[in-house]
Design a protein around this nucleic acid. Sequence first.
DNA 1: CCAAAAGTGTTCCGTCTACACCCATGG
DNA 2: CCATGGGTGTAGACGGAACACTTTTGG
Lengths: 224, 224
Amino acid sequence: MTYYSEHSKVWVSVDCIVFGFENNKLKLLIGQRQMDPGRGEWSLYGGFVGAEESLEDAAHRVLNHLTGMKKVYMKQVGAFGAIDRDPGERVISVAYCALINVKDYDDKLRKKYGLQWVSLDALPKLYSDHNQMVKKAITLLRRRINSEPLSFNLLPKLFTLTQLQHVYEAILGEEVDKRNFRKRIKQIDFIESTGLIDKVTSKRGAALYRFNKKMYADDPTFRL
Amino acid sequence: MTYYSEHSKVWVSVDCIVFGFENNKLKLLIGQRQMDPGRGEWSLYGGFVGAEESLEDAAHRVLNHLTGMKKVYMKQVGAFGAIDRDPGERVISVAYCALINVKDYDDKLRKKYGLQWVSLDALPKLYSDHNQMVKKAITLLRRRINSEPLSFNLLPKLFTLTQLQHVYEAILGEEVDKRNFRKRIKQIDFIESTGLIDKVTSKRGAALYRFNKKMYADDPTFRL
DNA sequence: CCAAAAGTGTTCCGTCTACACCCATGG
DNA sequence: CCATGGGTGTAGACGGAACACTTTTGG
């Protein structure tokens, strides 16, 4: 197959931009590089794409390796291919954005890999072009949060409306009016009230809601 | 650098999704593959990414080679990396979307490469996953046309409001109210009327407008 | 003189926004 | 009993959508 062999191959990696939500803040999972080049620098977690796996598979493999979690929401952010983006060799990287519920994530695994949840407003300089990747991921999140049910991925299965509102505020970076927010939520029938009451976060108790996936699949219309 | 060499490299290509606007229709530039695998199938035009060029550079190189045009509007659509997406070898491809003014494109070059402008509603089955790429590109276009000044790339420097409206209708796939459209355009100060009149497309004559790039750069706010 | 495209305002309706007070309970 | 977070409605502003006729001129 000489047609292909005239051309050169390159390394391709995936980098995972893992967002979580904690203390009413949007957080990013980063670690310090254990290898050269860039040993010690803050970095997203990534991995090379194998010869026998798709980009999506590679991204899920890396994330699963890190967190033990499967079926996580992931979306491609884009391919990053500047020649010298990696200080070692020429590597093209495809960034993927994942949204996880921090509570579902085994903290022992987090510590095992030396990873940290860092608040987005306090994000340090990251390795290579990883800051760019994060920036693009946030732009995408902001653009999509009003037309796709993303936010539930950052919350437990059962959540209160106040929690949900805080997720929106964290992603949009601005405050939201409580009454207007709840008014709109009520019009969305796949966000349904379970009869349950959460007594942990408030004395009075707050109604617990959940995202009805099937109902959404039947009529995937979402406008917030 | 054993850290890298443990992993396998892959071929990476770019594919250009070239949109044009003609006869009030959005058109796509495609050709028939001249090489195996897939010889004779309709296809986007692509090329391998060289060891010494960035993804953007590769996309521009391919487009420039095809059309002779430089400084064309291009935007990354995404990376496509299913294992068997290319029937020959494992190739990961990054799709780029370009918007060009058909009139600026030398038709001799088009014929030289055997390319055709095909209306989007009559798009044939394309090679590999190219239909998916096109679909994603259109989704992106639709989403962005109201928040970014894309449409001017499909028109000559001077254009009439009716032409501009037709571009919107072609991209959105639905009719637009003339009076409402013009009302909104008037509020955008970087779409400015030159004093000129176009007598080609109408007997009465229509005012020619242009996109003032500098004015937009000063205040890049765009809401249509 | 007529066909063909350019150009022009107003009204209505629905949506978004701003805004303040009572409720229930644990400590 | 009080501090804390949960829960509720309305009025006014704004923006988008619907809608029809006059103008110009080349052929």
